[in-house]
Design a protein around this nucleic acid. Structure first.
Length: 111
DNA sequence: TCCATGACATCCA
DNA sequence: CTGGATGCCATGG
């Protein structure tokens, strides 16, 4: 019965990421109150890869590095999508990552 | 129940 | 900078 999994939490947050913005796995994990379980966030994204409503390309690691680009179909799809939103990519990492960074715990709030 | 894996984060050499 | 090791939590076999 509608048991809310950790993934669902991640999906909700990721889906709320505005365009031209990005966030980190740790930030989401932290927002969920599970700082350290950032792996779960990434894993959730793996499952989210099949979700069309999950802009996983807006989720990167804390370095702003496109660690998950290898999981996208194609080689440059992730960075391409980000560039489409106005985010510059250099060497698989986001330029001015801090500038595009979107902190859910700062912009969002508990349900 | 135990073991292995995972799109991370952080520390140390 | 690179590589190895540890922690953290959840899922699957």
């Amino acid at each position: 019965m509608a048991e809310i999994s950790f993934f669902d939490r991640v999906y909700e947050v990721v889906k709320q990421i505005p365009e031209g913005r990005v966030t980190s796995y740790g930030a989401i994990a932290n927002f969920l109150g599970a700082s350290g379980s950032a792996r779960m966030v990434g894993w959730a994204m793996n499952n989210a890869s099949k979700m069309e409503d999950i802009p996983a390309h807006r989720v990167v690691n804390r370095n702003g590095l496109l660690t998950g680009k290898h999981h996208f179909p194609g080689t440059r799809l992730m960075e391409q999508l980000l560039e489409e939103e106005g985010i510059a990519i250099k060497e698989d990492k986001i330029i001015n990552f801090q500038q595009h960074f979107w902190d859910p715990s700062a912009e969002l709030h508990e349900e």
